[in-house]
């Protein structure tokens, strides 16, 4: 059994607890050990790199890298935003001596920043053998078209995150295909959902997320699959606001990758926190997931 340091981040501990829950279930099913990082702090998310000159965007995640440096060889950050910030911090700490010295003044010791940082898709692709997954899922997702939605920060900027194709990422596909789902062509997989503007400039989020949902439906997608809690919030939690703003009637379920895989493995929607989803369509889809399970 391989054990990883686990950086849940603020979203997975509050507004996205179902992501944490489903991740732990899927990890457990494949004997992936998760050791939550001791006393971790917020990675700074979107505001830190974009305010007060941006230094906090490196300083805050640096402390988490430092803590992780005393633990396991690799750390997983399922939140795409946290993953991006941790990778940025690693890059800056190794290239920017001045900022590293400031970090060390705050930490009061030489910063350890070399721990390997993995995103969720990376971890699952490393630990899960598609053949094994296929054998255990017995086609529970067959006939369901999943739109793989990566968002922006998981794959950009490519020279920092060093992961997948920044314009046409594909790494979720082997897992979902092994679980029996079909993956239709979905060209909006890296279109921005509107990021952190929800509270302060809602119209940007609603317009950006609406386009994504609209194109997903045109592509014949039954549900979107994401690894980013902020994208999830914008596409799922705000779907009713989108309907109210544009007079649309969207009911597109949005699942975390771990929820989709959890369903495929036979966990119940309740265990995976899917009953909690806002999109009305999910109850319909969930019952069809249930039916396939019983069949």
């Amino acid at each position: 059994m391989s054990v990883y340091s686990y950086f849940p981040g603020c979203s997975l501990s509050s507004s996205a607890t179902e992501y944490d829950k489903s991740f732990r279930l899927v990890a457990g099913a494949f004997d992936i050990g998760l050791d939550e990082l001791e006393d971790w702090n917020c990675c700074g998310a979107s505001p830190a790199p974009h305010h007060w000159g941006g230094d906090l965007g490196i300083l805050l995640p640096a402390r988490n890298l430092h803590i992780a440096g005393a633990g396991h060889d690799s750390m997983v950050a399922p939140c795409a935003g946290c993953f991006n910030r941790l990778k940025y911090a690693q890059h800056e700490l190794s290239h920017n001596d001045e900022l590293r010295r400031r970090t060390e003044r705050a930490l009061r010791e030489p910063v350890r920043y070399q721990t390997e940082v993995l995103n969720l898709v990376q971890l699952l692709n490393r630990e899960i053998d598609p053949g094994d997954l296929a054998g255990r899922t017995r086609g529970r997702l067959s006939g369901i078209a999943l739109g793989t939605y990566y968002g922006c920060v998981l794959v950009r900027p490519p020279e920092i995150v060093l992961y997948d194709d920044p314009n046409d990422p594909v790494k979720m596909e082997p897992l979902l295909k092994a679980a029996g789902a079909t993956i239709p062509h979905f060209p909006f997989k890296t279109e921005c959902c509107g990021s952190y503007m929800g509270l302060a400039r809602k119209e940007i989020v609603l317009k950006a997320s609406r386009r994504i949902i609209e194109v997903a439906l045109e592509c014949g997608v039954d549900a979107l699959v994401t690894v980013c809690p902020l994208c999830h919030q914008n596409l799922d939690l705000r779907q009713q606001q989108i309907n109210d703003a544009f007079g649309t009637d969207y009911h597109l379920p949005v699942l975390y990758l771990t929820q989709a895989l959890g369903l495929a493995l036979g966990f119940s929607p309740e265990e995976l926190g899917i009953d909690a989803h806002l999109s009305l369509g999910i109850s319909h889809r969930t019952s069809s997931f249930d039916n396939t399970k019983k069949a």
Partner: peptide
């Protein structure tokens, strides 16, 4: 609210910002 143990260390990180607050 959540609470971490070493809040002081986080505050020290904030003191290292060069830009204006």
């Amino acid at each position: 609210p959540p609470r971490i143990r070493h809040r002081r260390q986080v505050r020290r990180l904030f003191q290292q910002i060069n830009g204006r607050q």
